Computed example of a mutant assay.
Amino acid sequence: MAKRALVVTVRIEGVREILRALTQLPKDAQTEIRDRSAKIAAKLAPKASADVAAHGGRQGPNLATTVKVVRDRVPAIQVGGSRRLGRHRAPAYGILFGSIFGMSRRSGWYASPRYGMSPGRQYRPHRGTNAYAFFPVADREATTISREWNAAADEIVRKFGQGGA
């Protein structure tokens, strides 16, 4: 079964051109950009975890334990997965969207009309596509991440482009 998680990647200016240039370089360059991206994402992961714990509703602290760094060519972190959380052992992907985006009513066998409009029995009212947690941290840190990743990519292209290493 595939893992169900939400992965956030930050929009970086010129990323396609840089990644295209990196494909022309040796495999060591790919490995190094993955390592550098993981280090950049590792700076963001604790902030995202704290944000999910603080703003993710009652399930936020449980969900915050699933935030981890994804090793990719661009900085990425993920939350969710198939790990069972809480006293009812619900999978993380099952509570993920309700905690991060909110929900308007419960779904499943316990969704009776009497619970539908009860604000005490839901995470919070769904207000559209804006996230309460996780995404705002990535948006706040986007310029820093973009600057650091571009600097790392430039250094790697210079290092390996001239026959180094």
Score class of each variant (00 low, 15 high):
Thr9Lys: 15
Arg11Pro: 09
Ile12Cys: 09
Ile12Gln: 08
Glu13Arg: 14
Gly14Leu: 05
Val15Tyr: 13
Arg16Ile: 00
Glu17Trp: 02
Glu17Gly: 09
Leu19Phe: 06
Leu19Pro: 02
Leu22Gly: 08
Thr23Lys: 13
Gln24Leu: 01
Gln24Ile: 00
Leu25Phe: 07
Pro26Leu: 09
Lys27Ser: 15
Lys27His: 11
Ala29Trp: 02
Gln30Ser: 13
Gln30Thr: 11
Thr31Lys: 15
Glu32Asn: 08
Ile33Ala: 10
Ile33Arg: 09
Ile33Phe: 07
Arg34Glu: 15
Arg34Val: 11
Arg34Gln: 14
Asp35Ala: 15
Ala38Tyr: 04
Ala38Ser: 11
Lys39Gln: 13
Ala41Gln: 04
Lys43Asn: 12
Lys43Ala: 13
Lys43Gln: 14
Lys43Arg: 15
Lys43Pro: 00
Leu44Val: 14
Leu44Trp: 14
Ala45Leu: 06
Pro46His: 08
Pro46Tyr: 08
Lys47Asp: 10
Ala48Arg: 07
Ala48Pro: 03
Ser49Lys: 10
Ser49Gly: 10
Ser49Ala: 15
Ala50Thr: 01
Asp51His: 12
Ala53Arg: 01
Ala53Cys: 01
Gly57Val: 10
Arg58Cys: 09
Arg58Gly: 14
Gly60Ser: 05
Pro61Phe: 07
Pro61His: 06
Leu63Pro: 02
Leu63Arg: 04
Ala64Asp: 02
Val67Asp: 02
Val67Phe: 02
Val67Thr: 06
Lys68Ile: 01
Val69Lys: 03
Val69Gln: 04
Val70Met: 08
Arg71Asn: 12
Asp72Thr: 05
Arg73Asn: 13
Arg73Val: 13
Pro75Trp: 11
Ile77Trp: 05
Gly80Ser: 05
